[in-house]
Amino acid sequence: MTSNTTDLESVFTSVVDDLVGLIKSQAIRLAAQLQLADLVKDGPKSLTELAEETGTNKAALYRLLYALANCGYFEEVEPEIFAQSERSYALRTDIPRSLHGFAIMHGGEEWQWEPWRNALQSIQTGKPVFPEMFGKDLWHYFKDDNPEAGKRFQKAMSSQSRQYELAIARGYDFSAARTIIDVGGGQGSLLATILQTYPAIRGTLFDRESVIAMARQSNLVDGLQDRVTLVSGNFFEAVPSGADIYILKQIIHDWEDPESLQILSNCRKAMKADGRVLVIDEIITPGKKVPPVIALIDLQLQLLMRGRKRSEAEHRSLFEAAGLRLTHVWPTDSTYTILEAMAL
């Protein structure tokens, strides 16, 4: 620790910035809800215009935009005239890699924020607090209590996933495969990217019935219908058989070891003799730093469910228990790592 006064001032300023992070995320969420980035996509607009188009109070909207502009979201090019910035551009709804849905989910969903009220309990007991607070696990909450939140979750996950899909498709050589199955693949964004990158491959998107219904309504697999099969089911019971590659992207980190083992075992039973299972996730190694977002999402998982981000060694142990062996670890030009496993 330094004793330099200037350095200490900088440290304290940074800490204060972190402490008001809640306010920043809520402000970004409001910008997404009001679709402000869409409203200035064709050029700067006056505060009066923006207030009229959003149905908001002009003075209050200025305070929101002023706060956002000072955080790098939007730019006040003249007094009460606001333009797009690089960061606010990411909130547009009409761009391929939009973070609009992700901003709304992380800024405003009850299931995200309420568990933090009991965060200390989770740290003391080591158990998630969401099931106790909501009376069921997150997935049944989406299914039974708040299907609209579940839809927003799926859209947000697809939005977030699109930031890294090309890096994943290029980070592993899929060319030898004829068929791949994306297990728990959401709306099919990653599968579509892989199929677009490798035109000879056919793919199956496998997820819960409600998610597959959303995938049918989305345009993520447009132009690929003759190469994509949509199948609904429960990966704890079985997965479609006979594929060369089974993809599990951000799946087993949602579950404890017994559930993760069941998913991996079902993939092992279903795959061809020379098939492969690819676990695609962000790896946490004790003592090694990772981008803060990875560690923070892992902390959020602590509150929500019994899953967690795992180390390479922990993945290796799970593979072996499922009758698989870790054959290769492929880094990508993203935060994700691809862990390849084959039959023992």
Rank of each mutant, 00 (worst) to 15 (best):
T5A: 11
L8H: 10
L8I: 15
V11W: 11
V11P: 02
D17L: 09
D18E: 15
D18I: 12
G21K: 07
L22T: 14
L22S: 13
K24T: 15
S25R: 15
S25H: 12
I28P: 00
I28T: 09
R29G: 13
L30Q: 14
A31W: 04
A32G: 04
A32K: 02
V40S: 00
D42L: 11
G43C: 03
G43H: 01
K45I: 02
T48Y: 12
E52K: 12
E53C: 05
T56F: 10
N57P: 06
A59G: 08
L61P: 05
Y62W: 09
L64R: 01
L65M: 06
L65S: 00
Y66S: 14
L68Q: 00
A69N: 03
C71Q: 15
G72Q: 08
Y73C: 07
E75M: 09
E75N: 11
E78V: 03
I81Y: 05
E86V: 10
R87C: 06
R92M: 09
T93M: 08
T93N: 07
D94C: 07
R97V: 13
L99E: 10
G101F: 14
A103M: 08
H106V: 09
G108A: 08
E109Y: 05
E109Q: 13
E110V: 12
W111R: 00
T125F: 03
G126H: 01
P128R: 01
P131W: 01
F134N: 00
K136V: 01
K136Q: 11
D137K: 01
L138Q: 08
D145E: 12
P147I: 06
E148D: 10
G150H: 01
Q163H: 01
A167N: 06
I168H: 00
R170I: 04
A176I: 03
A176E: 11
T179M: 00
I180T: 02
I180H: 05
D182Y: 06
G184P: 03
G185M: 02
G188L: 07
L191A: 04
A192R: 02
A192F: 05
L195C: 06
T197L: 04
Y198K: 01
R202N: 14
D207F: 03
D207C: 03
V211Y: 03
Q217S: 13
N219D: 12
D222G: 05
D226H: 13
V231P: 04
V231Q: 14
S232M: 06
F236P: 04
E237C: 07
E237P: 07
A238R: 15
S241A: 15
S241Q: 14
G242C: 06
A243C: 09
Q250I: 15
D257W: 08
P258F: 06
Q262Y: 06
I263W: 04
S265Q: 14
S265R: 12
C267G: 06
K272R: 15
K272C: 11
A273C: 07
D274W: 02
E282P: 02
T285Y: 11
P286L: 10
G287I: 08
K289T: 14
K289Q: 13
P292K: 10
P292F: 11
A295E: 13
I297D: 08
D298L: 09
Q300A: 12
Q302E: 12
L303I: 05
R308G: 04
E314N: 10
R316Q: 15
A322C: 06
L326H: 10
T327E: 11
T327G: 02
V329K: 05
P331D: 06
T332C: 00
T335R: 11
Y336W: 09
Y336C: 01
T337F: 03
T337D: 08
I338N: 00
